[in-house]
Write a protein that binds this DNA or RNA. Sequence first.
DNA 1: CACCTAATTTGGAATAATTCTAATTATCGC
DNA 2: GCGATAATTAGAATTATTCCAAATTAGGTG
Lengths: 146, 146
Amino acid sequence: MVTATQSPRHPAGLAQKLADSGLRSTPQRELVYEVLLTKRDHPTADEVFARVKPELPGISLATVYNCLETLVQCDLVRAVNFERGPTRYCPNLRPHAHFHDELTGQTHDVDLPETLFAKLKSELPPGFDANAVEITFRGKAKSSAN
Amino acid sequence: MVTATQSPRHPAGLAQKLADSGLRSTPQRELVYEVLLTKRDHPTADEVFARVKPELPGISLATVYNCLETLVQCDLVRAVNFERGPTRYCPNLRPHAHFHDELTGQTHDVDLPETLFAKLKSELPPGFDANAVEITFRGKAKSSAN
DNA sequence: CACCTAATTTGGAATAATTCTAATTATCGC
DNA sequence: GCGATAATTAGAATTATTCCAAATTAGGTG
């Protein structure tokens, strides 16, 4: 029989990406990443902490902060900030925008054509060279996408 | 001779806009607004406090927060949040994007064609109705626009 | 102009989010 | 198995912001 790792649900990419940066794969990092992948509602560090704790009761909030920062450094997760308030975390790596629903407070990922991002960058005045664009919409979502 | 008001440099719009919301024009509000107009480098509340204090030594940080919040409510100023850290304030009311220079940490306003904002909104999936779009670029600015 | 009322400001305490620190624990290569 | 290094932990410290109750200021009214 194949020996299963403790958390086989996450993509194999994690251990590899960590190794690429000279970092180790640990139960805490795996679990934090898995939690992000499982419920993609852009949780805060506190929320991640709450979701992770039942599985790994000894984990500390500081470690959750550390793990999230590590994942961001490895380009496995994006940190998202709109409006004052705690940073939120998003494991969606494709270029996409965020739609912030003013009624529910929820944040939805919105895929936009790659060409639009390119067009935006091309609209910059001479001398400005952007390597990333962040787009946030605010409004009301009536869709079933909740 | 014409009797000058204490702070004649700010647009006459301030007192009017405040009145529209049933609020009073005060020296603190006028000065905070004037400071934002004078140096448009997207200062934090602390920075505004520092700039305002020499002119009005008795002012408190709480008042600066209050004034900034008031100006945002009156649509005279926009609160800007990218990356974790203190909220910054921007008196530019035209639709525009922000360019965050990774080298200097400075933030520049970038005017984009109105049509682009419209196009972005039109790219949203059905059911998503945006009333605002925020765009932030990150990268390096080599221009003289510093 | 004196008063009444409500808006505003103030200083300090309280809260929230995050980072720091020093000590402990786990892991990797030999 | 040992030693060096990485990672985690708990709690203290820091930063940004909000809250609160008291003092001040400003209009409007007679």
